[in-house]
């Protein structure tokens, strides 16, 4: 049962990765190319930064490499969503399987994409100093792990509250707790400001919008696609309708 869900999630994730690739190729790659051209322009090249040997050609990076990256990431997110779904399905009040999948994907998107990206947004090549990459990577993953852990805790807390105070009240309080603690986390973690002064703000904005777009296409496709196949499979083990209206007929 769980293995079957996992397989479905990963397969939907691969399909979602394919859609995300189409989006990334069309709307993201132009800004990656723009940034690499900026990076390689002699007047912008960082002092002392030797020309790096090209291990993988740009054509491969922007084509098969990008596709591979998004398919693997999509399969992983699809699989993780399926596992979270296995825990949540049938346990979130009266929500149907399809709604549970959508809720899990929405919460995952907020915790894994939206909130960490608001603090440490995506950067194209040429933005960011090579000296700070280790620190930046650590901060990013600290933020990511904390956000995910807090979201899981808030969801479990909200579910418990919902049993006593109703679904909307429980979810509202849990969302407030998540947002309040993340606000403190935003204030506590250092900012990173390494954008070269001569880098076009418009290009940076467009790159970041494209990046959020790639993630949104991926997560929306997984949440809705997995919901569709999960509901289809859930019918085979659905809860029979309760007996009602015993006195309805004579």
């Amino acid at each position: 049962m769980v293995g079957n869900l996992l397989l479905r999630g990963m397969m939907i994730g691969v399909l979602a990765g394919l859609l995300a690739f189409c989006f990334a190729k069309t709307f993201g790659e132009p800004w990656v190319d723009y940034a690499i051209a900026f990076e390689e322009h002699p007047s912008h090249a960082a002092a002392g930064a030797a020309e790096e040997p090209e291990i993988v050609s740009r054509q491969t990076q922007a084509g098969f490499g990008l596709l591979t990256g998004l398919l693997v990431y999509g399969a992983a997110i699809g699989g993780l969503l399926a596992l979270a779904f296995a825990f949540a399905d049938g346990r979130l009040g009266r929500l149907s399987s399809r709604s549970v999948a959508a809720v899990i994907a929405a919460l995952g998107y907020v915790a894994i994409v939206l909130v960490p990206q608001l603090k440490y947004p995506a950067n194209p090549p040429a933005v960011g100093s090579a000296d700070t990459i280790v620190a930046r990577t650590e901060l990013f993953f600290v933020m990511l792990a904390f956000s995910v852990a807090l979201m899981i805790a808030a969801a479990m807390f909200g579910r418990r509250l919902s049993e006593r105070f109703g679904g909307w009240n429980g979810a509202t309080v849990a969302a407030g707790v998540y947002l309040a603690i993340m606000t403190v986390m935003f204030a506590a973690l250092p900012n990173i400001e390494e954008i070269p002064a001569s880098f076009s703000p418009g290009a940076l904005w467009n790159f970041r919008v494209a990046s959020i777009g790639v993630q949104t296409v991926l997560w929306a496709s997984i949440g809705l696609g997995f919901g569709a196949v999960a509901e289809f499979s859930a019918r085979h083990r659905s809860v029979p309708g309760k007996v009602v209206g015993a006195a309805a007929s004579r």
Partner: peptide, 11 residues
């Protein structure tokens, strides 16, 4: 290097 562009575009 192979998945470089995916890493940038996934944030």
């Amino acid at each position: 290097e192979f998945v470089h562009d995916g890493r940038h575009l996934l944030g």
